[in-house]
């Protein structure tokens, strides 16, 4: 049987200490996500959506429980290995685009490859190619401040895609965009994901965005439910 499981979460708990108070962000989460899935994650603010995304993105580790990524136990990975994993396998897309304001679109895309062993000349080529794919070839040498919100998010998508990751983790990717742009961005994400057989996990408040996914998760008070 072909191995298809990307993520396997077993009994994952995440507890934050906020002063003397403990906040239970995730409670006993069991979750299996396969390659190529398109999943939406919804839920009220503070329910644990972001925490789940951070654990999936190897930015944070569970307090208890076990996370496997591509069959590898993340608990047993060093922080260096986790960093490498982020550099090579995980693409992040943020609500605020999080582009580096001092760099051009092209350079912002290259930043993602700067964390890998890709040679400088190849970085330029690959970044330019991905920018062309997201329709921004003519904007490659503009600063983020010279781009519209939709264009900035396209740059961010290009940055996430350029490393050819296994998964795209999008945190409210359309939260700052108007409806028309939102649909364009979602279409772009979905095409990119299906063309490259990527797992696409989208955290959103927007039910229209959530509706586009094939599998729906809801997190409330740290408890994950399939919808």
């Amino acid at each position: 049987m072909e191995y298809t499981t990307l993520y396997k979460l077993v009994g994952v708990n995440k507890v934050f200490k906020q002063g003397s108070k403990e906040v239970h962000a995730l409670r006993n989460v069991d979750l299996t996500i396969s390659f190529g899935e398109h999943i939406s994650v919804q839920g009220p603010t503070g329910g644990g959506k972001s925490t789940l995304l951070q654990i999936l993105g190897a930015l944070d580790v569970p307090s208890t429980g076990n996370v496997e990524f591509s069959g590898r136990d993340m608990e047993k990975m060093s922080s260096r290995e986790l960093t490498e994993m982020r550099a090579e396998k995980i693409g992040f897309i943020f609500q605020n685009y999080n582009l580096i304001p001092t760099m051009t679109a092209q350079e912002n895309v290259e930043v993602a490859l700067a964390a890998t062993n890709v040679a400088a000349s190849q970085r330029r080529e690959r970044a330019a190619a991905v920018l062309a794919k997201v329709g921004l070839a003519d904007r490659a040498h503009h600063l983020p401040s010279e781009l519209s919100g939709g264009q900035q998010q396209r740059v961010a998508i290009a940055r996430a895609m350029v490393k050819e990751p296994a998964v795209l983790l999008a945190d409210e990717p359309t939260g700052n965009l108007d409806e028309e742009t939102r649909d364009e961005i979602m279409e772009l994400l979905e095409t990119q994901a299906s063309e490259n057989n990527l797992t696409l996990i989208v955290v959103t408040h927007d039910s229209a965005v959530a509706a586009r996914a094939k599998r729906h998760l809801n997190i409330k008070d740290g408890v994950v439910r399939e919808v």
């Binding site: 993105g57 930015l59 260096r80 960093t83 490498e84 994993m85 982020r86 550099a87 090579e88 995980i90 992040f92 943020f94 605020n96 999080n98 580096i100 304001p101 930043v111 993602a112 700067a114 964390a115 890998t116 940055r159 490393k163």
Partner: peptide, 16 residues
């Protein structure tokens, strides 16, 4: 902070 957080999320090592 956000810029460096993003870089870390993109896989930049701290020492870089």
């Amino acid at each position: 902070t956000r810029e460096f957080g993003t870089l870390k999320a993109l896989g930049w090592k701290s020492n870089k």
